[in-house]
């Protein structure tokens, strides 16, 4: 029984981690069709913002939940203004530009902070489960991820901004004729996406530490999750995470982590073969 609880925890944790690192990317890619190769670096910058703020004496929760998303959101605003805005509609050029940005950010952070791991230790202690125990912080991480996903879903479907954003995404010309400033909507969306990526990095910092090139470990998994999810903005990547996460966790547990990682990728290939526009085409009708 205890073992079952631990295993369930590993599975849910795996889903939550995929969802957490993909949410920012899903917003930027899903709404704007901008492929942001610097997504991993936004996550990394969020981690650094947290660790540096915390080492400078800022309360850990404040550093994670406020400082990191604000800092990365501001960086996102600058990036949007200097790069993304100029390249709307040029898919390949944006990919190249954000890839360059990713290399630049890795280089800049390495030059300033050095190529070593930094970190803060996980707060909250642990919770015993029979003979086992799990980190309380990781439970909180799952809860915050769930909260973030629910809030994004509500914001998109129940607020005026969500309505405008969806309108700009679906038909920007029509939205413009109705008096919506699409450029501002895009800018705001990019900033929010960046801030959420930064928050993801902040939340991950206590359990994984931060490194200049840590983004590489996340960006591929985030892309796999978002692309397998398909067109439906939130429900799409969430369902992909729910399919991919357990497979990776269970196979890492019962076989080896290499098998777990490989099956995640294999499963994504199978999903895209069966649903070329992602799993969410099942309920959005391939839109």
């Amino acid at each position: 029984m205890d073992q079952f609880v631990i295993l369930c925890f590993a599975v849910v944790n795996s889903i939550a981690l995929l969802a957490l690192i993909s949410l920012g990317l899903a917003i930027i890619f899903g709404m704007m069709r901008v492929i942001n190769f610097a997504h991993g670096e936004f996550v990394m910058l969020g981690g650094y913002a947290t660790v540096i703020a915390n080492h400078a004496g800022v309360n850990l929760w404040l550093s994670m939940l406020v400082v990191a998303p604000m800092v990365v959101g501001m960086i996102g605003a600058v990036v949007e203004l200097l790069i993304i805005r100029r390249l709307y509609g040029h898919l390949v050029t944006t990919m190249l530009a954000t890839w360059g940005l990713s290399l630049f950010l890795i280089g800049a952070v390495t030059a300033v902070f050095g190529n070593t791991t930094m970190g803060v230790s996980a707060p909250l202690g642990n919770i015993p489960v029979g003979a086992y125990s799990i980190g309380a912080y990781q439970l909180l991480l799952i809860a915050i991820t769930a909260l973030l996903v629910v809030c994004s879903l509500l914001a998109l479907h129940w607020t005026k901004y969500g309505l405008i954003a969806r309108a700009a995404m679906q038909n920007s010309e029509m939205a413009t004729t109705l008096g919506i400033d699409c450029d501002r909507v895009y800018a705001a969306t990019f900033i929010i996406g960046a801030a959420i990526s930064g928050l993801a990095g902040a939340l991950l910092a206590p359990i994984s530490g931060v490194l200049p090139h840590m983004g590489a470990a996340y960006v591929a998994r985030a892309f796999v999750t978002v692309i397998s999810g398909g067109g439906a903005l939130i429900t799409g990547f969430l369902s992909a995470a729910t399919i991919l996460g357990p497979v990776e966790a269970l196979l890492s547990y019962f076989a080896t982590p290499v098998v777990g990682q490989a099956s995640l990728l294999l499963l994504a290939v199978i999903i895209l073969r069966l649903f070329p526009t992602g799993v969410s085409s099942l309920w959005t009708g391939g839109r």
Partner: peptide, 14 residues
């Protein structure tokens, strides 16, 4: 490049 050791730790505990 693995950074999530949750499954590993569950395995060791078992």
């Amino acid at each position: 490049d693995v950074t999530d050791f949750t499954a590993a730790i569950a395995k060791i505990q078992a």
